[in-house]
Structure formats: C-alpha cells, structure tokens
Design a binder for these strands. Sequence first.
DNA 1: GCAACTGATTGCAAATTGCAAGCAGATAGG
DNA 2: CCTATCTGCTTGCAATTTGCAATCAGTTGC
Lengths: 174, 174
Amino acid sequence: MNTEHRSGCPINLSLEVFGDRWSLIILRDMIFGGRRHFREMLNGSLEGIASNILADRLKRLMELGLLTKADDPSHKQKAIYSLTEMAITLVPIMAHLGAWGRVWLPVSEELSIRAELLEKGGQPLWEQFMDELRHEHLGLPSKTPPGMPTVRQQLREAYEAVLARKAEAVPLMP
Amino acid sequence: MNTEHRSGCPINLSLEVFGDRWSLIILRDMIFGGRRHFREMLNGSLEGIASNILADRLKRLMELGLLTKADDPSHKQKAIYSLTEMAITLVPIMAHLGAWGRVWLPVSEELSIRAELLEKGGQPLWEQFMDELRHEHLGLPSKTPPGMPTVRQQLREAYEAVLARKAEAVPLMP
DNA sequence: GCAACTGATTGCAAATTGCAAGCAGATAGG
DNA sequence: CCTATCTGCTTGCAATTTGCAATCAGTTGC
C-alpha cells in the first residue's frame, strides 16, 4: 500500500482513498446492487467501467483494506469480493452523497428513489442496512428479525414501483 | 457546463462534481480555512496544489454552480470567490468524510481535531456553521447571537490548543 | 522607478484513462 | 470428446489529465 500522503487531514486522506471517478461507483454497486463478481460489476455497471480500470480499482481497494477476495466454490476461476467493515461504514456517506445529488443535480427519477428512501429512513435505516451488509459480507449474525423485509429489498421494490408507474404513464407498447 | 453524464444516479452525479483529487480540497479550504483569494488557496494549501490546476478547478466549480467570483474593491486585480448555497450544503458530507477518515486512516492529531469537534457537535453544529457561511458568503443575516463564538473560531482554537500541547510535550527549543 | 503581488497562462514530460482485443483455464451442452 | 461460452484479468495504444516550472501583464506600496 502506498504510504505517501499529501497531508494528514482526514478529508484529504478520505479523498486519497476514493477521490476518483470509479472507486465509489464500484463500492456503490457492491453495497446497493449486491454485486460480488468481476463480470457482474463489469456488465452491470450503468456507467460502463472498463475492465482494466475495474481490475485495477479492485486491487487497489483490497490493498487499502476496503475489500477482500475469496474463491467461489461454484467455479474454480470465480472470485467473490466482500466488503470489509471499513467499506460498510461508508453507507452514511453514500446516503449523504445521494441526498445532496438529489437536491442539486439532474438525477433521474427511477435512480434517485433509492436515495430518497435512504434519506427518509435516516440513521436507523442506515444501521439496519449496515447490519445486513455485515451479515452478508462478514458472516456476522444479523439482528434483523426474519419476517422483516431487508433494506435492499425495500430499495429494490421502490425502484421497481417507479419503473412500473412510468411504464404505465408512457407505455412502450400501447 | 458539460451536460454529458454517465448516468442519472445521484451518487454518480455527485462524483462527477467532486470525484477528483482537488475539487473538494479547494472547497474544504474555503469552508474551514476561510480562504477567498487565489493566492491564499495556492500558498495555504497543505497538499500543494499547482496553479494551473487551481485555476482550472475554480473555473469548473463556477460553471457547476458551486462558486461565484466578484471583484475585490481593495485591489483591481483581486478576485473574491464565494461559496453558493450548493457548496455550503456540503458541510455535512465534509463532516462525515472527516469522521470516516479519522476512524480508518492515518490522520495526524492536529489536523483531525477539527473533524472530531465537528463530529461531536453533530447536526446542530453543522447548521450553525452553515448559517455562518451563508452570512459570510451570501450576505444573509446570521442567526448566531453576537456573543457566541463562531464555529470557525471554535475549530481554530481547538487546533491551536493541540499544537500548543504538542509543542510543550516535545519542545523544539528546550 | 521598482520590487512585490495579483490571478492567471504556457510548454512539456509523466501519469492516468478509455477502448478494443486477447489471454488461459473452467465449465456446460451436445 | 469438442466446441462454445464463461471466468477474471492483461496488453497495446491513443487520448486525456496531471504536475511542475517558468512566465505573463497589470496593480500596488514604497
């Protein structure tokens, strides 16, 4: 890991970690999209990341301690990437970034519904989400009751509801 | 302003605004360091920004609507840069970034004391700080009582207290 | 007059990015 | 088997961005 830092300022050091155009996008897809494999991230990315950049950033994020990599038992060449606690605690920052972008930037409705939900849910929802991520990526026991819908499910359903409503309002095949 | 976006996702759009190594550093120095002039930012920057990059980013941040520029009456070639409301509402994000960096990255004590104070103060302190920034940069009437120390003063005093304590513990000139 | 200061700009080498193609090994279907 | 597809990842190359030093013209204080 690179130990040359521009300064010891917390904001600067945070920027050195994900102050580029791709690192946070990758983490976003892992956190909110549940992606764990190279191809999933490569093909599922809305923004169209290039494979060499993805490989480079995954390596870098591992060196920085935000991700770990393990073999996937289902396929000998498949690797599963997991978030570390360090990355999971980015959830509040993601929520704030989304909330800020929703106010000031030309977001699309279907892609911003998740940010809206996350903003309205506030700290308690973020805590529940981080708990779920710890269960999913670190194998910790989840505190979420079995019957309760997961945060990712809630986000997904809200997203699909918007899509359905838009499809009805402006039908592609009347 | 560039209108080509990679996607309408709020997080992506936010990253397109300050997903680089310098934009947020400049805003940090303006917000927390109170810098308003080109030279102040150029020479005062801990991280050593180059003048062409600074000029480019100031221009870009103006085009994006985060900064405005006005003539300084005291010097015909001097320009004063002001934060817009859009930039002022980044304070909570800065606070979270600082808090995260303080936990996970090798921050220096004297530079992280401000992040610690901002974290402990929470939303109420951020609101007061944003109110002060609106007064300073937008000319709005401040709601802060006259006798009350400003947030920037508090941050500055805490920073200097740490410096003084460290100087005593490890004196340069015994 | 002149040095210091103002917000920049320029030229150039180095690093980073984006894109397409290609890689070897693993697996699935016929 | 045999081939087609999938796996994570690498390579080559052009285009862009960055970092650094030097420079600029106008302004100010002395």
